[in-house]
Amino acid sequence: MSQYPMTARGAELLRKELNELKTVTRPRIINSIAEAREHGDLKENAEYHAAREEQSFCEGRIQDIEGKLSNAQIIDVTKMDNTGKVIFGTTVTIMNLETDAETTYRIVGDDEADIKNNLISVNSPIARGLIGKELDDVVNIQTPAGTVEFEITEVEYI
């Protein structure tokens, strides 16, 4: 199986979700199924079918998280020397050379990506354009509006 790159924070969030699913959600669903069974005929019991569907989703998510954690390649950039090079896990500030607008992104794994919080997937076009570049480099990144020229103004290993 392939390795899943993940930040230490991302791995911790997955572990918390897994613990929540196993200790809170799973027992609640089991109780819901037991209560629904007591209502009688299972063929026409919507509560029972809804609880079974929720159980299926929960078990699938548990398997998904366990698989990702077992194949996780946890990368903690805080323990690395800052060379000014953009790598997985770094926080990068880029400036659009046309508009002088600055944006800061953190390059994270697919499961951690959240554009609203400026967490971008390592597989996103922006991250792919930045990985391997260094502080003060100028990069051209393909966006929906066309190719945009950015300058890397800061690289943090935080």
Rank of each mutant, 00 (worst) to 15 (best):
N118E: 04
V77R: 02
L69M: 05
R106P: 03
L97I: 11
V92C: 01
I152E: 04
L18W: 01
E151N: 08
Y4F: 12
D110M: 13
V139W: 09
T147P: 07
Y105K: 01
R28H: 15
V24M: 14
C58K: 02
M1G: 11
I120E: 02
D41I: 08
F88E: 07
A127W: 06
G40H: 06
N123S: 11
R28C: 04
I131K: 00
A51D: 01
V155G: 00
T23G: 06
Y48N: 00
E44K: 13
E154R: 03
E98K: 02
T90F: 03
T91N: 09
Y48C: 00
N140K: 08
T104M: 15
T93A: 03
E98S: 05
C58T: 07
T83R: 13
R61N: 03
I126M: 11
I33M: 06
N31V: 07
D111W: 14
P5R: 06
I107W: 01
R37E: 11
D100I: 02
S32A: 15
G67T: 14
T143Y: 04
D64T: 08
Q63Y: 14
I62V: 05
G84P: 07
E44H: 12
E12C: 04
G109P: 02
G132K: 05
V155D: 00
E53H: 11
Q142H: 13
G132S: 11
A34N: 10
R37S: 08
D111H: 13
P125E: 13
R128L: 11
R128W: 01
S124I: 10
